[in-house]
Amino acid sequence: MYNFEVEQPTSVADAVAALGEEEAQALGGGQTLIPTLKQRLASPSKLVSLSGIAEMQGMSADAGVLSIGGGTAHATVAAGTAASYPALAALAGNIGDPAVRNRGTIGGSLANNDPAACYPAAALASGATIVTNAREIAADDYFDGLFTTALEEGEIVTQVRFPVPEVANYQKFVQPASRFALVGVFVAKYPDGVRVAVTGASEDGVFRWSEAEAALSANFNADALEGLSLSPDGMMADLHGTKAYRAHLISVLTKRAVAAAG
């Protein structure tokens, strides 16, 4: 770790101002950033901690929309949304280990957009709205490839709004070492159709499987997915799975998610 300054603003406005400085870096729960700093793979001159900002904490449900503050920890989401959005609660409760869940935040996860992270699948499958200090971004416009999002420099995810689906389920097949998603599939059924988002698999990060969405919108049953498959082209390959294996897992997990969503 190199030396850096730390600032702990208590309002979004102060945080945005602090992030305007050269080489300043926002710090959410630090579950990705701190290990990166320890390995000396990043050298920000200033960390702007978002954990002391009250307006970025907590959850509220209103008119079928669940709003979660960007600074809310995974464990808080897991405990607080079990009734309002059980599939999301289950996802949050199965990220990393207890230390990660108690420190890591939803805003941090979505801003980082790790291609194997769980939250991007939930946000994209739910057609969530990513609220920042400056604007509202539809999930469909937000994710932009590996570790890349529509966020501008210094822009902070202050809230995420999830339209609550009729039924939903997230199936995560873990990479044996990291226990990130080797492939994760989030299926959410809304009155106007079904959305299917896949994490962990594609070289372009989280994506929607439109053929499956069409089939499931017509018939929300795992049988509707028979014969549907994705090409291995464009999938990731590493020590833990080939392109073909990941493409195959997407089909398997989508069926399981539909079956589990009921």
């Binding site: 044996p176 070492a177 020590l239």
Partner: peptide, 24 residues
């Protein structure tokens, strides 16, 4: 039997050089 493997690529880089890739 099920999890652990230290894997080198052909350039001699250890690919499983952390717990992110070496499964305990």
């Amino acid at each position: 039997a099920l999890l652990e493997a230290a894997i080198y690529n052909e350039d001699g880089q250890l690919l499983s050089a952390s717990y992110m890739d070496y499964a305990m």
